[in-house]
Nucleic acid binder design. Structure first.
Lengths: 337, 337
DNA sequence: GCTGCAAACGTAACCGATAACGATTGCAAC
DNA sequence: GTTGCAATCGTTATCGGTTACGTTTGCAGC
């Protein structure tokens, strides 16, 4: 059958089978109270017409839909990792997944897009939602889990231990003998950016190394934002012997800048990042970084949401996942040591 | 406001504002025929209650929803690229996007999942759908665009020029002087696999090189499937001087196998792939491949669907996008020449 | 033969919104 | 004072299902 023609509805099936729509509904939902002969008739009609129940109509009437929602702003490379984790966690769970995004990719977002998207889904379509954005003003009748929420949030959430992770990286650099360590911070509005910077500061303080404000510059987590500020650091007469960027994307950009300036990594400059995106393993030299497993974040968020929806969640309201230092070739002891 | 409480509906707003739901609807949809004073009252009530219209209820009643759907089986790495293209094409178009996936990631798929997913969305939720799968038995009341459809399909579709792309790669290898070129085919049920193999055959035929069936082995596009069959090729006494794999994932696996066997690429063996996934640029040596721009596929599919929904599509029913040969370090003239 | 009861099935209200239609109101024109 | 018309707003049917409830039917038990 080709295109065209109105979609086949339950009453079409009912008419063909010579029964009421209620009976068709009972057959579809395998409810008690339909004789085997009429069941067979109805099934035959469904088969013949190629009927599929409408998700919309069903979800409007029913409270439970067995569909979970995921709301995102736009597609980044890490988004795919999160989604893989979410889908693996939902594998064979009986829950389907709907991802809702809007088309305003580059335009300015009207305030409160999270709430708007959430409301459109969680009204009746989904049994619960995952929100991938720093945000905590959740209003929803159904459970919501936030990945990487704003600082001090009290909504159910999953986040990486950015503070410890960043501390570990800085301690790794300090352990190698570095004392002048540049830091490229992330967008200051994000909790993750704050935690990573704080980890850097604490590690230095712990080692008795004073924090030089001149060595802290700010990007926005985007690779492109790192190039100019990295140059600022590296053009200094007393340039740092190591640079710790708050994201791998920015760290990879630092590698490019270093190459442009004729600096050898890790000979002249050690570079470390945060995230462990796939590309970081493939550069030459490989990038020392912190694995925060976006996959794991997605996986845990989905697991949590699933339990919240089923009402059998036992764990804590906020999950903080451990991070893992990944040492590769981009860091070494400073030459001047 | 925290969680809990039934979601606020239109009648809640109507009650608070002292009007009927019809009036609220008119205000929400900016229709003519509401005095400015009542409009203000209604808006105030909406604000106070935090009302958001339900996507489900709206789409059930209305024919048009300004939401497009995308149906996929599971998340692969290329899926993210397709999605980026789709979202860029939809940027500021007024269309939102809903991606529907089910949870059966590893389990066996019941036959006809495409139709089932499509029916659940296109009943009323979406104005049209993109289906990312080789499939052509489309039945839908709303427009559907298929990315990478089955062979000889007549539904609106977007696909890469696999035939020409594969021919180009094979000709590149022939041009370097290779005569014994192994081919690792993809899953035979897919049209893309057929086209890529056909391109390989045609290039050889064009150069007057007889096709040796012993040099053609079959994977399934998955990286893991390539290792054993690559070994079969490379363990032969008269092993090929070059291997062309029908996907980058498989080609990268061939690089691993070659390394295990102590073969030098491209000194002892040239390797080429197809897809140009990001990883292919980062290996050492870089992988010669064909860029088919999944991004572009997604972009064009979305553009086409948008026009089909609006009824102003002028282009052809099937779009075939050109491919581009990307020459990197993994291919060179054979040593024995 | 009548009652009782459960199985089988239809009727109709309902989910939250939209839109055709009807009803009310105010005001100008006759 | 009517009439006419437009502006404003409420009533109600409807989208495609689900489900509480009512009705019919068949059959066992008295």
């Amino acid at each position: 059958m080709a295109e065209g023609g109105a979609p086949v509805t339950m009453s079409d099936v009912a008419r063909l089978a010579g029964v009421s729509t209620a009976t068709v509904s009972r057959v579809v939902n395998r409810r008690y109270g339909v004789s085997s002969s009429t069941t067979a008739q109805v099934r035959a009609a469904i088969q013949q017409l190629g009927y599929e129940s409408s998700l919309v109509a069903t979800s409007l009437r029913r409270s439970r839909t067995n569909v979970l929602g995921l709301v995102i702003h736009s597609f980044q490379s890490y988004t795919a990792e999160v989604l893989k984790g979410v889908m693996d966690a939902l594998s064979q769970s009986g829950f389907d997944l709907i991802i809702y995004t809007n088309s305003d990719l580059y335009g300015t977002y009207a305030e409160g897009w999270e709430q708007r998207h959430l409301a459109r889904l969680s009204g009746t379509l989904t049994d619960g939602c995952i929100v991938v954005t720093p945000w905590d003003e959740v209003r929803s009748g159904t459970p919501v889990v936030v990945i990487d929420p704003a600082k001090g949030s009290t909504v159910p959430s999953v986040t990486a231990d950015n503070l410890t992770g960043a501390t570990t990286v800085a301690e790794h650099l300090l352990g190698l003998g570095h004392r002048r360590i540049g830091f490229i911070a992330g967008r200051s509005s994000l909790a993750a950016a704050w935690a990573r910077e704080e980890g850097y500061r604490r590690a230095l303080a712990g080692a008795g190394v004073p924090v030089d404000p001149e060595l802290i510059v700010r990007g926005d987590f985007n690779p492109e934002s790192a190039a100019p500020v990295a140059r600022v650091l590296l053009d200094r007469a007393d340039r740092p012997t190591a640079i710790f960027a708050a994201s791998d994307g920015m760290a990879l950009k630092v590698l490019d800048v270093a190459k442009d300036l004729g600096l050898c990594v890790p000979g002249d400059l050690s570079v470390a990042g945060f995230d462990n995106i796939p590309e970081s393993a493939l550069t030459d030299p490989g990038l020392t970084t912190v694995d925060q497993s976006m996959y794991q974040l997605g996986y845990e968020a989905a697991r949590m949401l699933k339990s919240l929806v089923c009402g059998d969640w036992e764990g804590p309201g906020q999950i903080v996942l451990p991070t893992r230092l990944v040492i590769r070739g981009s860091t070494a002891a400073p030459k001047t040591l």
